[in-house]
Write a protein that binds this DNA or RNA. Structure first.
Length: 574
RNA sequence: CGGGCUAUAGCGCAGCCUGGCUAGCGCGCUUGACUGGGGGUCAAGAGGUCGUGGGUUCGAAUCCCGCUAGCCCGACCA
C-alpha cells in the first residue's frame, strides 16, 4: 500500500480526552477515531491489525478442532428471559422494541451467544453420537457498559471470538477445555503479548473450572494475584490466601479490654490516627445481611472483604452490607463502632483477624472503642476462614512465599459452564441406554479488539507503537527520503513490488515530506521493519534496514534488500 | 448510578474572573519559492452557529438558569 493512497491520519499532539497510552497512541497513529463514548471507528491501519489478530484466532481455533459459524447479533429477548439472564445482565443488555406490522417485537443485541447457540443445538443435536462438538464465531458484541473508558479497552461494542463446546461427558468437556486453553496460549504468543493465565471463579462445576488470560499492564482494570516462587496465579476475587503462622493467644494478655473515647471517629483511618495505632492492630467488624439475617464479619483493620468468599464460607446465597438500623440493633451503636465483644449476632472470623494478639475494636457504643481485645479470650472465635481479598505480601496458598499483585487486562476467558444453559433451554442428548441428559457445555471468549488495544498498551516506547511482527498492520515500512529523486523512487518502487510479490505486507511512504517528518510518523505507527532509501545510501549502493524494536541499522546492498528482509522476517517468525 | 471537571478552527490551547469595536495563539491545512537523513525556512491565504436552548443587558465567548455531549474518580462489569 502506498501511504498517499490510503487513509492514515496521524497526529503530532495528544488529544485531550485520551489518558492511557494505548488510547493516545491509537488516536495519534491513525488506528481509531471515536464516534461517541464507547464506540470507535477502526480506520484502515487499525482494522488491518484487527484482521491480523482475527486470522490468528481463526487459525488456532481451526487447529484445535473448533468449527466456525456466524450468529445474529439481533436476538429475541425471550431467549434471555428463559435463561434468567435478562435480569442478570440488567442494564448491560441492550434491548429495545420495534414495530413489525401490527406486532410489537422485543429485541436484544447479543452481549454473548450462549442462548442463541444452545437454542440451536437443542434443536439439532439429540444423541451422544453427535457429541462432542465445539463451535465458534468472530462477531461484534454489544454491552451497555455503565462507563466505557480507556479508549478501545472498554467499549460498548467490540469484536469478540466466542466458542462453545458441547459434550456428553465431563471427560469430553475437559478435553475441549484443555484444547481451548492451549489454543489461547498459542494465540497470545503469536500476537506477541505477554500474558498470564489465572484461576478465575469456579462456577457450578467447581475446582479448576475457569481461567482468565490476563495481560499485565499498569492500567489494567483487573487485579491479578500471583506467586513468583511457584507460579500460582488467580484473579483477586478468586485468589486464596495461605494461613498465617499459628499464633497462640497469650494468656497474659487476658486482662479486660479498656474502653477509650473516640468521638466522631468511625473509620479505621480516623481511629488509628486518633489513637496512634496502625490499622494492622485493628479488628474491623462488618455487619452484613446474609440471606436477610445479620452476620458480623471480622477482618484485620487493613484488609478488605471478599464477598464471594464470605458467601461461600457462610453458606448463604445473598450477601449485602447491613443498613444503619440493623447495625444499631445488633451493636447498639451507630455505624462505625461495631465490635465483636458483646455483639448480638453470629460472627465469622478471618484467619488474619484471629491472629491479631491485642486488638483495637469497636465498643458497640457510640464514640467508643476497645483496646486490648484478644481473640478467643474476649470473644469466641471458633473456626477461622479466608474472607478477604489477597494483598501483596500475603502468603501464597501453595508455597507460603509472598504473593504479588499486578494489574491486568483480561483478554480471554475459558469457562466450564456445565448444564446451566442446556437445562434452561432444554438442550439434551440421549446416551447408549436411551437415557436423556442435559448437554455439558463450556464457553471460551477472546476480546479481539481488546487484544489489539492490549498490544498497543504494552508494546510502545516514547516515540510510538512497537508492533509485534504478527499483529502489525503492515510488516515492512519503506521510506524513500526524497520522492523527487528518480533513483530513490525507482529503487523504492522496485523493492516495494518485489516484497508485495513475495506476499509481505508493505507500506510505502510515498508522500512528499521531509525525512524527519516521515521518520517521526514511522516511529509513531511502529511497523516492525523499516527500509530507508536515500540518495546518501544509494551512492554506496545500499539501503538501510532496521527493526522498530532495535537500534542497529543493517546496511544492505540494494539488490539484496528483498532477500535480506525476507530472511529477517522468517528468522523472527521462528 | 453517585461525585468532580470540561465544551472557543481539524488537533492542542488562551480569552471568561472584571461584558464592549474585527475572537486570538501554536500545530495542521492551501498556494508559491527555497529546501531535502529526525516533525525545515520564508511569503501569501483559507478555515469559527464560541456545544445547545432560554434569560439578564444598550451590548454576552464572557454573567444567570436549563439541556446535551465528552472526560476523570467511584459503584457496576454472566
Amino acid at each position: 500500500m502506498r501511504w498517499s493512497q490510503t487513509f492514515i491520519p496521524t497526529m503530532k499532539e495528544v488529544p485531550a480526552e485520551a489518558e492511557v497510552p494505548s488510547h493516545q497512541l491509537m488516536l495519534r497513529s491513525g488506528l481509531i477515531r471515536q464516534l461517541m463514548a464507547g464506540s470507535y471507528t477502526w480506520l484502515p491501519l487499525g482494522y488491518r491489525s484487527v484482521r491480523k489478530v482475527s486470522e490468528i484466532v481463526r487459525e488456532e481455533m481451526d487447529r484445535a478442532g473448533a468449527i466456525e459459524m456466524f450468529m445474529p447479533a439481533l436476538q429475541p429477548i425471550e431467549l434471555f428471559e428463559r435463561t434468567g439472564r435478562r435480569d442478570a445482565f440488567g442494564n448491560v443488555l441492550f434491548n429495545f422494541e420495534a414495530r413489525r406490522g401490527d406486532r410489537q417485537l422485543h429485541f436484544a443485541l447479543g452481549p454473548t451467544h450462549e442462548e442463541v447457540i444452545t437454542d440451536l443445538i437443542s434443536r439439532h443435536i439429540s444423541t451422544y453420537r453427535q457429541l462432542p462438538i465445539t463451535l465458534y464465531q468472530i462477531q461484534t458484541k454489544f454491552r451497555n457498559e455503565e462507563r466505557p473508558r480507556f479508549g478501545v479497552l472498554r467499549t460498548s461494542e467490540f469484536l469478540m471470538k466466542d466458542a462453545y463446546s458441547f459434550s456428553s461427558t465431563v471427560e469430553q468437556l475437559n478435553e475441549a477445555y484443555d484444547a481451548m486453553y492451549n489454543a489461547y496460549c498459542r494465540i497470545f504468543e503469536r500476537c506477541g503479548l505477554k500474558y498470564l493465565p489465572v484461576e478465575a471463579e469456579s462456577g457450578p462445576i467447581g475446582g479448576d473450572a475457569s481461567h482468565e488470560f490476563m495481560v499485565p499492564a499498569g492500567n489494567g482494570e483487573d487485579f491479578v494475584v500471583n506467586c513468583p516462587a511457584c507460579g500460582y496465579a488467580a484473579n483477586q476475587e478468586r485468589a486464596e490466601i495461605g494461613c498465617p503462622p499459628n499464633s497462640t493467644p497469650t494468656t497474659e494478655a487476658s486482662a479486660e479490654p479498656q474502653i477509650v473515647d473516640t468521638p466522631d471517629a468511625g473509620s479505621i483511618d480516623a481511629v488509628s490516627t486518633m489513637l496512634g495505632r496502625s490499622p494492622q492492630e485493628f479488628i474491623k467488624t462488618l455487619i452484613y445481611l446474609a440471606d436477610e439475617k445479620p452476620l458480623a464479619v471480622l477482618l484485620r483493620g487493613d484488609h478488605t472483604a471478599n464477598e464471594g468468599k464470605i458467601r461461600r464460607a457462610a453458606h448463604v446465597a445473598s450477601l449485602e452490607l447491613a443498613d444503619a438500623d440493623t447495625i444499631l440493633q445488633v451493636t447498639g451503636a451507630p455505624v462505625g463502632f461495631a465490635g465483636p465483644v458483646g455483639i448480638k449476632c453470629p460472627i465469622i472470623v478471618d484467619h488474619h483477624a484471629a491472629a491479631v494478639t491485642s486488638a483495637v475494636t469497636g465498643a458497640n457504643a457510640a464514640d467508643q472503642h476497645l483496646v486490648g481485645v484478644v481473640p478467643g479470650v474476649h470473644f469466641d472465635v471458633g473456626q477461622t476462614f479466608d474472607l478477604r481479598n489477597a494483598e501483596a505480601g500475603d502468603p501464597c496458598p501453595r508455597c507460603q512465599s509472598d504473593l504479588q499483585i499486578v494489574h491486568g487486562i483480561e483478554v480471554g476467558h475459558v469457562f466450564k459452564l456445565g448444564t446451566k444453559y442446556s437445562v434452561s433451554l432444554d438442550a439434551t442428548f440421549v446416551d447408549r441406554e436411551e437415557k436423556s441428559h442435559p448437554i455439558i457445555m463450556g464457553c471460551y471468549g477472546i476480546g479481539v479488539t481488546r487484544v489489539v488495544a492490549s498490544i498497543v498498551e504494552t508494546c510502545h516506547d516514547e516515540n510510538g507503537i512497537v508492533w509485534p511482527l504478527n499483529a502489525a498492520p503492515y510488516t515492512v515500512h519503506i521510506i524513500p527520503l526524497n520522492v523527487s529523486d528518480e533513483e530513490v523512487m525507482q529503487t523504492a518502487n522496485q523493492i516495494y513490488e518485489q516484497l508485495n510479490e513475495a506476499g509481505i505486507d508493505v507500506l510505502l511512504d510515498d508522500r512528499d515530506q521531509r525525512p524527519g517528518f516521515k521518520f517521526k510518523d514511522a516511529d509513531l505507527i511502529g511497523l516492525p521493519l523499516r527500509i530507508t532509501i536515500g540518495g546518501r545510501g544509494l551512492q554506496e549502493g545500499i539501503t538501510e534496514v532496521r527493526w522498530r524494536a532495535e537500534t542497529d541499522v543493517h546496511k544492505v546492498p540494494v539488490a539484496e534488500t528483498v532477500q535480506f528482509v525476507r530472511q529477517q522476517i522468517s528468522a523472527a517468525q521462528g
